[in-house]
Design a protein around this nucleic acid. Structure first.
Lengths: 142, 142
DNA sequence: ACTTATATTAAAATAATTCTAAACTGTTGA
DNA sequence: TCAACAGTTTAGAATTATTTTAATATAAGT
C-alpha cells in the first residue's frame, strides 16, 4: 500500500474525505520516520511551505481534531496558551523545557509505569500523562 | 499572628504591597480549611461576592501569578482553554473529569512516586505532574 | 456530467490573557 | 503629619488561540 492510500485510509477512518489539503496534512504528519511535536501554527507553516499556497487554519484545526479523536494524534497537556500535539501515539511521557517552550519525549523506560490505586466511581481512566517541567538552575519555576 | 498579618506576609514575600483587593484575594485563597481548585474567573466571582464591588481582572491575574511564582499557588496542566490553579501546593496529582471539566485531587498515597531515570543536560526538574483523565465509559477520549 | 453532501476559506466571533495609560493609594522620610 | 514617589487599580484596548459562519468550491455516487 502506498502512502497515498495510507493517508486516504486514515482520513476515511477519521470520518473525513481525502482532499488535497488534508492529504498534505497527512504527508507532513505521517511520512517522517521520526515522530514529532507540533502546534497548529507550526503545522500550518510547514504545510504552506509544501503546498506553496495558503491553507485555512480552520481546515488544519478540523483535521487535527479528527485525527486526535480517532487516536492518530495525541494532545499533550501543558499549561500554556496553545495546544501541543504529538504524532507519537504510543504510551510515553514528556519533559517540557520552560526556557525554550520545547517538548521532549521521555523514553518509555525512563519512567516506571504509573500505578493508580484510587478510582473515581462510574468513571474510566482515559489517559495517564506525566509531565516533567525542567529549566536551567537559575530560573524560577515557571 | 492573625490572618491579616499572614496575608500581608505572603504578599510581601511575593513582592506585592498589601492592598484592600489583594487582602481579599488572600482571604478567599488562604482562609478555607480545605484546599481547592479554581480558575481566574471563579476566583474573581467569589471575590466580588465578598467585596460587594468589582475587582479588575488584571489585579486578579497579577496577584495569582505572583503567588504562583513564589510557590503559594500551583498551576495545573490541563489541556483546556483556561488555566486551573490549586491552593494545595504539596506534592500531589490530579484526576480530570472530562465529562464535567472538574479537577479532583489524587490522594498522596494513591499514586506511587514517579521515578524519572532520564535527565536533560543542564536542566533541573522543576515539577513532576501526573494527570489522569477520566470519563464515563461510553464517552470518546476527549 | 449531474446532484448532493461535504470541504475550504476569509472573515467574524469568542474567550482567555496581557497590556496600557490614567487615576489612585501605600509607604517613606522629612 | 504630610508631601512625594513608587507601586497599584482599573476600564478598556490589544493580543492570541480557537471556533464559527456563510459563501464558494470540490469529492463521490449515480
Amino acid at each position: 500500500m502506498n502512502n497515498l492510500n495510507i493517508y486516504t485510509k486514515k482520513l476515511r477512518e477519521s470520518g473525513l474525505r481525502p482532499t488535497r489539503q488534508r492529504l498534505k496534512i497527512c504527508e507532513v504528519l505521517f511520512s517522517p520516520e521520526k515522530t514529532f511535536h507540533f502546534t497548529i501554527k507550526d503545522l500550518t507553516k510547514i504545510i504552506e511551505q509544501k503546498l506553496s499556497e495558503k491553507i485555512s487554519l480552520a481546515t488544519v484545526y478540523n483535521t487535527v481534531h479528527a485525527f486526535k479523536k480517532k487516536g492518530y494524534l495525541k494532545e499533550i497537556s501543558i499549561n500554556s496558551d496553545k495546544s501541543y500535539f504529538d504524532t507519537n501515539v504510543t504510551e510515553h511521557h514528556h519533559f517540557f523545557d520552560e526556557d525554550t517552550n520545547e517538548l521532549i519525549d521521555c523514553g518509555k523506560n525512563e519512567i516506571d509505569s504509573v500505578n493508580i490505586k484510587q478510582n473515581i466511581t462510574g468513571k474510566k481512566i482515559k489517559s495517564v500523562e506525566v509531565l516533567v517541567k525542567v529549566a536551567t538552575d537559575n530560573q524560577n519555576q515557571n
